[in-house]
Design a protein around this nucleic acid. Structure first.
Length: 578
DNA sequence: GCCGTTTTCGGCCCGACTGTTTTCAGTCG
């Protein structure tokens, strides 16, 4: 069983957690966490890189020692040091780390003084009133532990973008209704367009004497106030989403926005650059530390902050410390793809199958978005659940599209299909029908649990068919619900390149598949990516921005995206017989 | 454990808030 990047990332993170509770050197702990981020952000598969003998220590955060450990992990399929440490330190302690307000020091105390090893034992001790007797702990801490344990159970994990997006929109509208508020913006992982968010970080500037904090506390959707200060407050919304609000002076807006957008590792890297220049960067600005008096040099805008360390402004989606700082330094930051670059949507459904609206309604909505084309890609016959189209149905839809196109100008409905990739790698409609179409999105909707090698071969066999254009939602994962099927994505991307096939970023907020990392792998391999919505309704067409977010996180530029092409060029790229 | 235009030792980002203290440690982001 090959070891994935995510597994190595998790092993290092868990190891760091345990080291921290054990009371190890905090910088050693940090080294493991940094390495975990680096491995998680690699665009190639770690096991293959090891097999090829690539020098992992060339990546930031991985030195000789950790490179050796990674090689061992890949070869043995396990991390021996972690397993040894687990014998010494109970695993349940790592779960306890997730309780808000409990960090390594307190957990160490709980473990040593009360012998607590699991969340269950922690809860029992809290309910029996044994925790408040410990030095440094008290009644309130004990109560917050009980609440924290409950919250972990009820809101496991992170929130999908759609929910966060809705919450963010309503909250900003509410905050801006307070007249003294000058600027209110969501920073954090939301601004970086991560596929899920843990909380919303709101940054506010306001006039003197503003009562914006009170205003925030009075927000209808607040379920519980976690912390309340003059410049920093946290609440829990009824949806379970936590919101942290920070109030900063107007002149610190840029520095604060930079600071609260993160990511943490990106900020650390930027600050380290500042330290080298004898500067200090915090959320209030950039300061020189010469002499006894510190002097404020910049901070009104993010650009000033970056410029102070000799860098150009960096797009938030890139700020993951995955090479963007080096790229910025060398003046080779990507010019990320934008909404205006998108000329059409290549994956939509109508009420002929499982969509909610007619072909005409969908096309009209796409035209209103300013698109030049939209492909109708209803399901193929095997998907009986969704009333998949049989050959005769496809022919009828082709005639319907011809009629519509003959009556419209400046907009083209493309004849398409989302055709199932069957278990044997054949496509679910005869070639003579598929040939009639402009675009074929090919997707796996069955047999998710095939072994990775078999699944990969199945898809590559499908790509061998010259009618194959775009691999739809390439891993089939559903965020927070189901992991993707096992495939060798690196192999699929290479197969796509050889066969002039493309991969999809499915913009559905439950899918976002390809993810950011594999989008970058596709780009690195010069395989074009189609950013599609898979819309089943008119409003779903707006999901494009979620897909764009992932594309931008994957460093994609206009030239890397299939549906930024003008119609003629697109049709040429979709014709593999050319 | 990583890193290096102050390079093989000695650093490693920084401030706000809470709870439990009576001046501050721990945690969080």
């Amino acid at each position: 069983m090959p070891v994935s990047n995510n597994e190595v990332e998790k092993m290092f993170d868990e190891f760091a957690d345990l080291l921290e509770i054990k009371g190890e050197n905090q910088f050693r702990v940090r080294a493991y966490r940094n390495a975990a981020r680096t491995v998680g952000g690699l665009s190639g598969d770690i096991d293959k890189m090891v097999a090829r003998g690539e020098r992992l220590s060339s990546f930031t955060g991985i030195g000789k020692d950790l490179e050796n450990k990674i090689v061992q992990i890949v070869k043995a399929g396990r991390f021996e040091l972690l397993e040894d440490l687990k014998k010494e330190m109970p695993e349940g302690l790592v779960q306890i780390m997730r309780v808000f307000g409990l960090g390594p020091r307190r957990i160490k105390t709980l473990h040593e003084k009360l012998g607590i090893k699991t969340p269950e034992e922690l809860e029992a001790a809290a309910r029996n009133g044994r925790i408040k007797e410990l030095p440094g702990f008290g009644r309130k801490t004990e109560q917050s532990i009980i609440e924290g344990l409950g919250r972990i159970r009820s809101t496991e994990g992170r929130f999908k973008l759609q929910l966060a997006d809705r919450a963010a929109g309503l909250l900003l509208e509410y905050l801006k209704a307070e007249k003294t508020v000058r600027q209110a913006v969501i920073a954090g992982s939301y601004r970086r367009c991560r596929e899920t968010v843990k909380d919303l970080d709101v940054l506010v500037t306001c006039d003197k004497g503003s009562r914006v904090m009170d205003h925030f506390m009075n927000y209808d959707n607040v379920e519980k106030v976690i912390a309340r200060g003059d410049t920093k407050s946290s609440v829990l919304l009824r949806s379970g989403l936590q919101v942290d609000l920070r109030l900063v002076p107007q002149e610190s807006y840029g520095a604060a926005l930079h600071y609260f957008t993160g990511s943490k590792s990106h900020n650390i890297a930027v600050r380290a650059m500042a330290v080298k220049k004898k500067l200090k960067i915090n959320e209030y600005g950039v300061f020189s530390e010469d002499g006894r008096r510190e002097k404020r040099l910049a901070g009104n805008t993010e650009e000033e902050v970056y410029n102070s360390v000799g860098l150009p402004w960096i797009d938030p989606e890139l700020r993951e410390d995955r090479g963007e700082i080096e790229a910025a330094r060398q003046g080779r930051l990507p010019r990320l793809v934008k909404q205006e670059d998108i000329r059409g949507d290549l994956h939509t459904h109508t009420n002929r199958t499982d969509g909610k609206y007619s072909l005409e309604e969908m096309a009209a909505a796409a035209q209103r978005l300013g698109y030049e084309y939209m492909a109708v890609t209803d399901h193929s016959q095997r998907l009986t659940m969704a009333h998949g189209l049989k050959p005769a149905d496809v022919k009828e839809q082709i005639r319907q599209i011809d009629r519509i196109n003959s009556q419209s100008r400046g907009f083209r409905v493309l004849k398409g299909i989302e055709v199932d990739i069957l278990e044997d790698g054949t496509l679910d409609l005869p070639d003579e029908i598929l040939r009639e179409l402009d675009v074929r999105v090919c997707s796996v909707h069955s047999k998710f649990n095939l072994p990775g090698k078999v699944q990969t071969e199945r898809i590559i066999r499908a790509m061998d068919n010259p009618n194959f254009n775009i691999l739809g939602h390439p891993t089939g994962r559903l965020i927070n619900e189901r992991p993707g099927y096992e495939v060798d994505m690196e192999k699929l991307i290479k197969a796509a390149r050889e066969r002039k096939c493309y991969l999809e970023i499915n913009s559905y907020p439950d899918r976002l598949d390809l993810n950011d990392i594999y989008s970058k792998t596709a780009r690195d391999n010069k395989v074009l990516v189609a950013i599609n919505t898979d819309a089943h309704s008119l409003s779903d067409l707006d999901f494009m921005r979620f897909g764009l977010g992932q594309a931008r996180r994957g460093w994609l530029e206009k030239k890397d995206v299939l549906n930024t092409c003008p119609l003629e060029e697109l049709l040429r790229l979709l014709d593999r017989r050319r």
